[in-house]
Design a protein around this nucleic acid. Structure first.
Lengths: 311, 311
DNA sequence: TGAATCCTATAACGCGTAGTTATCATAAGG
DNA sequence: CCTTATGATAACTACGCGTTATAGGATTCA
């Protein structure tokens, strides 16, 4: 019934003492004030302004409105300012999730960039496998996820539906074969997957295990998986001891280097796409957008050549 | 930029959890909410609502608006309620001024009536001669004045311009000739003003003095005014002691009765009109209107026959 | 007293906001 | 898989809320 504009007008009249002055102070024309007052009087059913000769004077009811104007308008201003702070990146909160090996360099660098450029933006970060982070994103417990997708592996495959999300490519990570330093293939330039039929395998995370199975399946056999662990330091150790070989993304190899392990390209070449995932809505939230931009910049600075945008 | 309606919508969305439910709770249609949110997002330049599958969830900025809605809206409601209280006569203040002899019965009765019917309305009352009360009315220091006008005396006469006011007739008060009980005319049914040429006169208030001068002037002489006092009790005393005669309104005679004074009609008949005066604006203020109505009722109950409305 | 000036009120008009209904597209759930 | 619930969009309407132009009073000053 009574709106903020009405209160602003009443306060201006109280302060300025005339319609004309009030109009001037609000940037309106004089008749606008006349009409606004009339509207307010019609709505409230009471006289608000006493037109006395040259000037005007507020009635009791009018004074009441003018008196309430201050608190209401300043509360509105406060709300507006707070939203503007978020929109202007002087404030904001982003909940970021990334898979463990992305945490090593990609994410820390991006966090530092955001903090440097927008000190008001706070980012809460937690590690999670793609499966979990996408679930969190879907559940609204996360604003931005850094995940990966194996090439060839169809994005969705039922469990991870990327349909409602927008994905931004960050890095293309080549998957290499890791063998002991003294392995017969250690010096090879390239190795065919089919040639590894009789090797003993070490698998990483469930997702990577699936990838291995798919690669072997394509080559026409089922790999002999002797060890499984999500700890890639352990994987490297196992390989170094000659207990097996493994397919490991280049990015991980760079992080957990082991001098007794050699890495070599495979045929067919296999890649892991590292992407940032969010929703169309969240992508437009300034703080989220800034973090996403920082991730892209971080990826470009750190390493390879991102491929073209997707979806 | 941000208005109360927007805050109300954001709060409803936060409370209800969906656009449809929010629309229902506000009595709007669902698209109205959709559009309102879009407008707000355009104005703030930020995403306020995250459309997640079936339902929606507020972003940080949206939550900020929803959080501010409470204080702002309740402040608005408070203002509205306060104005409604004044409009509904559950509250209100009236500054009433009346000339002294009206204070005796007319005003007290009216005050009692208002108090009985509208306990929330408080009336502040002070005595003042018509000249003062009208000046106060013009200066905005008074909402309602009870004044009088002598018949024949032109209302305005330069000094008391009733143009910007509205006057409501309350009583018609006949002006009588007051003489000592043992005066030669004391038993007369009627007395001609012209026959009083050689009397010694006692004048009341300045205004009444003016009236006396006009009556005498019409009759063709200048009265011999021996005493002047605004205190009508004193006037009666002077008359009773045989020190002179006076023209006194009937209403005053009823109030300050003196058994040694006789009152008789004069020719030409002269009347004093007692009126309530206010401004067109103030007349529409509920508390003022109620007081004015009470004055009219009080006048009708107490005495004579009010004449028809004026201006 | 009359002219000048400063107010407010009113009329006529235009535009944008904010509703409506109707229809479509998409998730969620049995 | 089909139903159902929910949000988005389009097209339309209306009126709230500004504008300019002009008229009507009130106050001041010569």
């Amino acid at each position: 019934m009574i709106d903020a504009a009405g209160l602003r007008v009443m306060r201006a009249i109280a302060d300025e003492g005339s319609f004309t002055a009030a109009a001037l102070s609000l940037g309106y024309s004089q008749p606008a004030i006349s009409q606004m007052v009339r509207r307010l009087e019609a709505r409230t059913g009471t006289t608000l302004v006493e037109r006395v000769g040259r000037s005007v004077r507020l009635t009791e009811a009018g004074a009441v409105l003018a008196r309430h104007a201050g608190p209401v308008l300043s509360a509105l201003d406060a709300a507006e300012e707070e939203v503007a702070a978020i929109a202007g990146l002087r404030s904001g909160r982003v909940r970021l999730m990334a898979f463990p090996s992305a945490s090593a360099t990609l994410v820390p660098k991006a966090l530092a960039m955001v903090k440097a450029e927008h000190p008001g933006v706070t980012i809460t970060f937690s590690e999670a496998e793609p499966r979990e982070s996408l679930a969190a994103l879907r559940a609204g417990e996360c604003d931005l996820a850094v995940a990966f997708v194996y090439e060839g592996t169809d994005l969705g495959r039922g469990e991870e539906d990327l349909d409602p999300f927008v994905t931004t490519p960050l890095l293309d990570d080549e998957v290499l074969l890791a063998v002991p330093h003294d392995h017969e293939l250690a010096q090879a330039k390239n190795v065919d997957m089919a040639a590894l039929k009789d090797e003993t395998w070490i698998a990483g995370c469930p997702r990577c295990r699936g990838h291995l199975l798919q690669l072997a399946s394509t080559a026409g056999y089922v790999p002999d998986i002797a060890y499984e662990t999500e700890d890639y330091v352990a994987v490297m150790g196992l390989i170094a001891e000659g207990l097996g070989v493994a397919v490991i993304p280049d990015l991980i190899l760079k992080t957990v280097h082991h001098e007794d392990v050699a890495a070599l390209p495979m045929t067919p070449a296999s890649r892991r796409h590292i992407v940032a995932v969010t929703t169309p809505d969240l992508q437009r939230v300034p703080a989220v957008k800034a973090t996403l931009d920082a991730l892209v910049a971080s990826a470009q600075a750190s390493n390879s050549k991102p491929s073209k945008a997707k979806r």
